[in-house]
């Protein structure tokens, strides 16, 4: 029983981590007033870059950093479109979702002899070293290092957004850019940087999939996690810890399907129905507990100087 419980916790943390990074990316971008539908595409870019770089350098940490860089590179497109050109943010985000996976698979085929998967790559270490506690129930708590990184980044973002003047500026730009502008805050630059940060975090999210969970890149490495992260942002009411909690919930629901789905669990539910559970649960939780979600006031609206 105890080992089952620990397994549940371990899997929950494992599944939720890529979502956490993606969702944090969404939070920072949307708090500054830019909707980022393109998280999925940015995560895919990150996932591929991480795997490819880790494969060629043999160092997963460089892979992780490169994934962040790749995320920034593709986020640059979103920033130019939605901030500099004040284009429709949904349209640009959809474009990112096509371009990101497109580039990832294109280069994957180029680099790895026309295959859409990379060979197995060097992964990031586990929290207590790779072979600690093997064979004991506690093994399940020896989670990937990315799990801890995700928690740390969440805490940092919370502190940054709510306890520093820069965070206040970001929030004011998202709520009332005209007022922020009057106070001398550069609205465009703030939003631009927030979108880039969003790309970096989404890139890390992709990396935490390929460098920790599946240890290679394949076409379904990122399949919908970016959209779930997007949902977690709204679910978590655009706050770092809210989004973190939402991601944990998704992770838990997924873990439940794994643990309950095992043949020895004695529960006879078709696996597809179990797999549906996380999503049904989310909708129920939204109806019962969360209710109306209020986005940052100017989320998704380009800022035009002098327009009321």
């Amino acid at each position: 029983m105890l080992s089952k419980f620990l397994l549940l916790i371990g899997i929950t943390l494992m599944y939720s981590t890529p979502l956490v990074f993606g969702a944090l990316g969404g939070v920072i971008s949307e708090r500054s007033g830019v909707v980022n539908i393109g998280i999925e595409g940015m995560m895919t870019m990150g996932a591929f870059t991480a795997a490819a770089v880790s494969y060629y350098t043999g160092n997963p940490w460089i892979g992780l950093l490169a994934a962040g860089g790749a995320g920034v590179a593709i986020a640059l497109l979103h920033a130019i479109a939605s901030v500099t050109f004040k284009a429709d943010q949904n349209v640009s985000g959809i474009a990112i979702n096509l371009i990101g996976p497109g580039f990832a698979l294109f280069f994957c085929r180029l680099l790895f002899k026309n295959a859409t998967t990379t060979p197995p790559v060097q992964t990031l270490p586990k929290l207590f070293g790779n072979n600690a506690f093997n064979g004991t129930p506690v093994e399940n708590l020896n989670v990937d290092i990315t799990v801890i990184l995700g928690l740390i980044v969440t805490a940092i973002m919370w502190f940054y957004l709510y306890k520093t003047k820069w965070g206040l500026r970001i929030r004011s730009v998202g709520e009332h850019p005209a007022a922020a502008d009057t106070l001398g805050i550069n609205v465009s630059r703030t939003r631009f940087l927030c979108v880039l940060a969003s790309g970096m975090l989404a890139g890390f999210g992709g990396a935490s999939m390929t460098l920790a969970i599946i240890s290679q890149f394949n076409p379904t490495a990122i399949s919908g996690q970016g959209f779930i992260a997007l949902a977690a942002v709204i679910f978590g009411k655009w706050t770092p810890f809210g989004a973190y909690g939402a991601c944990l919930l998704f992770g838990l629901a997924q873990a439940l399907t794994v643990v309950l789905g095992g043949s020895d669990s004695g529960i006879n539910v078709p696996s597809q129905i179990l797999a549906m559970l996380p999503y049904v649960l989310t909708i129920i939780v939204l109806i019962l507990f969360v209710g109306r979600s209020v986005a940052p006031k100017e989320d998704g609206i380009p800022y035009e100087k002098g327009v009321r």
Binding site: A95, N97, I99, G102
Partner: peptide
């Protein structure tokens, strides 16, 4: 996919 993505991107621009 890259091409279609770029088209959509420039539609936005």
């Amino acid at each position: 996919n890259i091409m279609i993505g770029t088209i959509v991107f420039f539609v936005a621009l």
